[in-house]
């Protein structure tokens, strides 16, 4: 996470070899990225770029999703099966023979995601996946990411959408001006005034709320609505009981 220009996408591109380090080393599963090609590294590290229009070129969604599989040399039979599976998983099966260009913005984003998930990379990097999405679309995305993660895939999200991250509560790496300024759980990092300031972000609403309620003994590292409700609920019930007792 970080503001625009902090270096998030630059770092992401180091992970599949699109960019090579000028100092230091990047390894993926032990392999030095300077010793492997982008195609080789991409087998394990899949990047879903922000704008789907940078990827789409095929006549049908099916071909689009199968493109990478063909590049990686999968058998035709396997390609067909993987494409079917991925289309099902992303609710795109009914669009299989449609031109990707006829789909809406949100649907094209799903096709782009499908195109990368098709080869089931171990590490999935999503570059700004929430931009321009409405709340429902973000909900669906969040559930999907959590599902992927529970299947054992590593998911890296490059984003500045603090509320979305607050809902997922993942590990957060904060960047600013090309450096990593903090690493930790989302609720710790995003509720820290100093770090937020350094990374030029804003605190999630819950964190803002609780930082102003510390006089009542609440912890500061609250970013999730449900945890907030629980904590407030307890205290408010206590107050209610106390008020009832004293009257």
């Amino acid at each position: 996470m970080g503001e625009n220009g902090a270096g998030k996408t630059t770092l992401a591109k180091q992970l599949n070899g699109l960019l090579k380090p000028t100092l230091g080393r990047v390894t993926v599963d032990g392999d030095d990225t300077t010793k492997k090609s982008v195609a080789q590294l991409s087998r394990k590290v899949g990047i879903v770029f922000q704008n789907p229009d940078h990827l789409l070129f095929s006549e049908t969604v099916r071909e689009e999703v199968g493109f990478a599989l063909k590049n990686f040399g999968f058998e035709p039979g396997v390609v067909v099966k993987q494409v079917e599976r991925t289309l099902e998983a992303l609710d795109l099966a009914h669009y299989a023979d449609t031109s990707p260009f006829l789909l809406s913005g949100g649907e094209r984003k799903r096709v782009a995601l499908a195109a990368v998930l098709a080869w089931e990379p171990d590490y999935l990097i999503l570059d700004e996946p929430t931009i321009g999405q409405d709340y429902q679309q973000k909900e669906r995305l969040r559930n999907f990411i959590l599902q992927l993660n529970s299947q054992g895939k590593a998911v890296v999200m490059v984003t500045h959408d603090v509320e979305f991250v607050a809902e997922c509560n993942p590990k957060v790496v904060l960047m600013s001006k090309g450096e990593i300024v903090a690493q930790g759980q989302a609720d710790e990092v995003l509720s820290d005034d100093g770090l937020i300031e350094k990374a030029s972000l804003v605190k999630p609403q819950m964190a803002k709320l609780f930082s102003q309620l510390s006089e009542f003994g609440f912890p500061r590292d609250v970013v999730d609505v449900h945890r907030a409700k629980m904590l407030l609920g307890e205290k408010l019930s206590e107050v209610r009981v106390r008020v009832a007792q004293s009257s």
Partner: peptide, 14 residues
């Protein structure tokens, strides 16, 4: 499916 402000969501839960 509208994204309501989190404080409003919190309030409605309470």
């Amino acid at each position: 499916g509208i994204g309501l402000p989190k404080v409003s969501v919190l309030w409605s839960l309470l």
